[in-house]
Every structure is written in structure tokens, then in C-alpha cells.
Amino acid sequence: MSLGDDQGYGGAGETRTRLPERGGDPYGGARRGGRSSSRSLVTVVGVVVLLIAAIAFANRGDDSASGGGKGSGDKPKAAATAASGTKPVPSKAGGIPTGFSRDQQGAESAAANYAVTLGSTGMFNADSRHRIVEALYTPTAAAKLQGAMDSAYSASFLSRMGLDANGNPPQGSTFVSRTIPVGTKTGQLTESTAEVSVWYMGLIGMSGDKSTDPVTSTWKTWTFDLQWVDNDWKIVTDSQKDGPAPVPGDDKAASSDQISKAIEEYGGFTYAR
């Protein structure tokens, strides 16, 4: 949340390890209000900063590639993200939706699905991360981004997240990293370029009896500069910013077992406009 930024999906952020203040499940039936634990906040910030720095570093010098789209074309009128009944994509490649239509709806569907993929746990494994970056970015952007991402997702960073060098959680624990789009908005749009922002809620953390970093939520906006390449929308550059975040509710936090079970039982969606 992926993580992909200002999950998913890095720069190097320092994190601190804090043991639970009391025994038992760290989720413990506590009520989740407007304040998260300092440990959880530091971890989330660490992931976000890590992703932003890697993407920003890799995309330096690409302004000319994306600038053309912003300098031409009329800005579309604002419109709610509403279902159209049109199937978003005809196929998938390696589990990633491909073949989006060359119009506003296709660009918005691509951005939403790309945010989901870049915010997934797949970004924490080198092999799957390489496939994701190669599939979603333009060839030029992907070539620059791969090395930066590898440096960002270092063994030491993964260790701070509670993962091993291959991005695997400890036995008995479930690592959670998900991006859930709430809506999309198109900025500048031309025949070959599109600027699309995805407002989303992210989930990140470790679910397990011994976890000191329970799964928490965050709200962000992910903006993609897309380009039409090889009959599909590809990312040239992307950036994130905080919010807008709604007022937190007073929902009772689930136990680690409930979170792990939900992650295993509830799959993701293919997002269409």
C-alpha cells in the first residue's frame, strides 16, 4: 500500500519496537477510537515514507513524459464514481487486471486496480514486486523503479515490519497490507494521458497472538499519471497524500484471530468505474 510514497508501495523510515503493555491478545477487545498506538502510527508512517521516497527517486527526470498530458486537453467535469455496468477489463495477467478501455472510465478503473495491487502484500516479496512493477509502469519508469524498490524493501526494513527476508510473516501470524478504493477522480485527460486520483482506505499490520503491531487503518489519496502504452494504461509517475479521513467510529476492535480469518476468507475485488 503497496503501500505504496509521500504504500503502498517507500524511503527509509525508522520504527520502534514496543512490547504490549499487558498480556494476551494485543487487539484485546480495546475500542478503536480516534487515536492509534504510537507503535502502529510509526509503522504506518515508516511504510508510507519508504514507498514515497523510492517512487520519488525512481521518477526523477520523468516530468517531461507526464507533462504533455497535463498541458493539453480540457479538464473533465467532476462526477461521482458511479457504476456504469461496463465490464472493467477482459482479462488478467498474473492476477493483475489488464486491457482497460482507452477512455475516462478505463483510466479510472486502471488507477483503482493499480492502487490495490501496489498496496498488496505482494510488494514485500522481491519476485512478485518485480512482476508488479514491470506490469503496471511504463518500461522507462519500471527500469528506474526496480532498483529503488529493492533498496527500500531491504531485509532490515522487512525485519522491522516483522517479516523475514522473503517478506513472510512468522508462523502463526498473518501480515496484512491492503488498499481499498473508495472513489476515483480524473484530472487532466487526453487521448494518450490521464491523471487519476484514488481515494482509499489502507490496512496494514501484523495479526497474531504475539504481534506488537496490530492491523490499523489509514486514509490517503493516491494520484497516478497514466500513459497509453501497448494498448493499456501504464503508470508514468505517482504520489500520495494524507486524507481525507472521516471521523473515527467507536467500533470494538476485533481479535487477532478474527482479523486473520477475515483476511483469509474475504478476497479483493476487480474495481470498475
Rank of each mutant, 00 (worst) to 15 (best):
D5N: 10
Y9H: 11
G10K: 07
G10Q: 10
G11S: 15
G13R: 11
G13Y: 10
T17S: 12
L19Q: 06
G29F: 01
R31V: 03
R32G: 00
G33R: 11
G34P: 04
S36L: 13
S37W: 11
S38T: 08
S40I: 05
V44M: 08
V49A: 14
A53D: 10
R60P: 01
G61C: 04
G61H: 02
D62E: 14
S64P: 00
S64K: 06
S66Y: 14
G67P: 00
G68Q: 10
G68K: 08
K70L: 13
S72N: 09
S72G: 05
S72D: 05
D74W: 05
K75N: 10
A79W: 00
A79N: 02
S84K: 07
K87W: 06
K87H: 07
V89H: 13
S91D: 14
G94E: 01
S101V: 01
D103F: 02
Q105C: 01
Q105D: 15
A107G: 06
E108A: 10
A110N: 12
A112I: 01
A112Q: 12
A115I: 00
V116L: 06
T117S: 12
S120L: 03
M123W: 05
M123K: 07
N125L: 05
S128N: 06
R129D: 05
V133Y: 06
A142W: 05
A148R: 12
M149S: 05
D150W: 02
Y153G: 06
S154R: 06
A155E: 11
S159D: 14
M161Y: 09
M161D: 03
M161K: 04
G162C: 07
P170A: 01
G172M: 09
G172N: 07
S177L: 14
R178Y: 09
R178Q: 12
P181E: 03
P181G: 02
K185S: 15
G187C: 05
Q188V: 03
Q188M: 09
S192M: 00
T193C: 04
E195I: 09
S197G: 14
W199Y: 12
Y200Q: 13
M201A: 12
G202W: 00
L203K: 13
M206E: 13
D209V: 11
S211N: 02
P214V: 04
V215D: 00
V215C: 01
T216D: 12
S217D: 14
T218R: 00
W219S: 02
W219A: 03
Q227L: 10
Q227K: 15
N231V: 01
N231K: 15
I235V: 15
S239Q: 12
K241G: 13
P246H: 01
P246N: 04
V247T: 13
D250M: 00
S260E: 05
A262C: 03
E265V: 07
G268A: 07
